[in-house]
Nucleic acid binder design. Sequence first.
DNA 1: GTCTATACCATGATAGAC
DNA 2: GTCTATCATGGTATAGAC
Lengths: 185, 185
Amino acid sequence: MAKPTDTRTRILAVARELFVRQGVRETSLREIADSLGITKPALYYHFASREDLVRNIVEPLMEGMERFVAQREPPDGAESEPHDPRELLGDFFDLAWEQREVLLMVVRELPALAPLELAERMFTWRRRLIRLLLGPDPTVAARIGASVALGGMSDCVVEYADLPLEDVKGPAVEAAAAALGLPRP
Amino acid sequence: MAKPTDTRTRILAVARELFVRQGVRETSLREIADSLGITKPALYYHFASREDLVRNIVEPLMEGMERFVAQREPPDGAESEPHDPRELLGDFFDLAWEQREVLLMVVRELPALAPLELAERMFTWRRRLIRLLLGPDPTVAARIGASVALGGMSDCVVEYADLPLEDVKGPAVEAAAAALGLPRP
DNA sequence: GTCTATACCATGATAGAC
DNA sequence: GTCTATCATGGTATAGAC
């Protein structure tokens, strides 16, 4: 049974905050330790390395994203049940909006996070999502449309982060739907 | 009069290659020096710091981008002459495609490049580009559409970098045009 | 099981000799 | 224009106190 706010949890919270604000490589372990009033090696008791620390921050996000597609994919071998594209785009927007801080961190730190093979996982994840949107054998042109839709919405989530969700989501989903080739409603 | 391939130029070429491939912070000055057969302090004779090195690699890209909008903006105080949006989107695609390696590096290394204030410059640049697309006082919804269009095309330039330009450009520009709200041709 | 003290090595950077 | 020598900092590792 863990204490209500144990050291491990506090380390993760502070590290996450600093990584998001200043970047992973721009935050020294000393900085993290100092703002918790502990020493550098104390960090090492809880996390084997800086990479381990980052992994524990990023993992929940990645799992959330993978659960997102898994829940919507047909069971193995079954007929693929088509999704309403606007609903799927809207759900994707919600997910990206909710996780935007760590999501931005991941994208901006891909070189630093290379040992975690996040780029590979993100790429696979996006392929599965595009499959949900377009079915199993889309043309190149359709895939490009989907990339514009998803990439464009991801950009919006960051660019308009200071506006309320409800001001951004509607127009972003509509623009993405248009990029996909759907008729305006 | 500089020698045909002086040391400074060779340093820039090797550094650019390594920065793009492995990331800025993942490339040590030692690594650069070694692959040129010189020592670390020799680097420091040519460049005041690592930051200075990065600046010299990124600057041509930034200037190219700023020239791109400056050439298309009306002279101060003059009537704004509207641009054909598809042509502008296409030209933007060409620019991003041509510079995609360093462009990707900049986006992925924004925390590391913070002292150069690149984020600020990129942001201003995008505002000017959106103004060219939408005129001086766009609605929020229109700006979001433009962000989807531009952000989506930037993604495509990276995601489909291994396809020939002519296979990607057409569909990407059409998807971006649709996100902007233009009718399909 | 939780932390401190301490040491080690690579890195960015500088000074000064040739 | 390039090198040797040197320093401070930061990530990592271990020994041992409690």
